[in-house]
Design a protein around this nucleic acid. Structure first.
Lengths: 116, 116
DNA sequence: TTGACATGATACCATTTGGTATCTATTGAA
DNA sequence: TTCAATAGATACCAAATGGTATCATGTCAA
């Protein structure tokens, strides 16, 4: 069977992405899963504050936390990030011609630069 | 010359994207530029509220407003959306293998479906 | 069993945010 | 000139947000 997608709504995901601390946490968790304390050690704020951020990220589907014995491992769920990227890509048709025009201008500029 | 990039910081852009009304406005402005009143007519809220959203979107680089006579045209600036998409794509290396594994699983599943 | 350690939950606070209402300023046209 | 239409600015409000401090809970090990 094709697995069900759906997941958290895009609103919760974008809300989770709207805070710089949370985007940093996402980058931190990319390479390896970490406990709350490990994440908190990277920031100048309380462990409780970091925990709150992690909850928001869970609601946005960006993080999955798993209890392992005494500690809780938090790992990145990249598919939520992909969903946000996919939403943004709906505007690709608007920025694509802009980049193409920019490229043309640069090439013309380089050519005129050769002459002068 | 290659035009200077930079623009608004990624934080302002993601903050502008974190509200559903603003994401709808972005979609609205994609096709054609609109006045504040034209945008406001699509929502169940005051023109002043929509104007506030537009200011936040300007701060995030998503919208450029231009005064034309008595009215003010607001148009989408897609490059800011591209910057956000580019930021997200930094995690592509995390979701790519996931999708590849998923694809494999689906193919195996289809094959077993043929047999049973 | 008992205590240290890591976590979770809650109450509380200041600030930001999304929204309305209201007022002022331009602009276009009769 | 004068008036209606469009927009911007400001004051104000309720709710959400980011943060701390504090307390309760579960787990590993001596």
């Amino acid at each position: 069977m094709i697995p069900a997608q759906g997941g958290p709504d895009i609103q919760a995901t974008f809300r989770a992405l709207a805070d710089p601390t949370r985007r940093q946490i996402a980058a931190l968790l990319g390479d390896e899963e970490k406990t709350v304390a490990q994440v908190a050690s990277q920031f100048a704020m309380t462990r409780a504050a970091v925990k709150k951020h992690l909850v928001v990220m869970e609601e946005g589907g960006l993080v999955i936390s798993e209890h392992r014995g005494r500690e809780t491992l938090n790992r990145l769920e990249p598919l939520a990030l992909k969903r946000a990227a996919d939403w943004l890509r709906q505007f690709e048709r608007f920025w694509e011609p802009r980049l193409a025009a920019l490229k043309d201008a640069v090439e013309r500029d380089a050519k005129s630069g050769d002459k002068t």
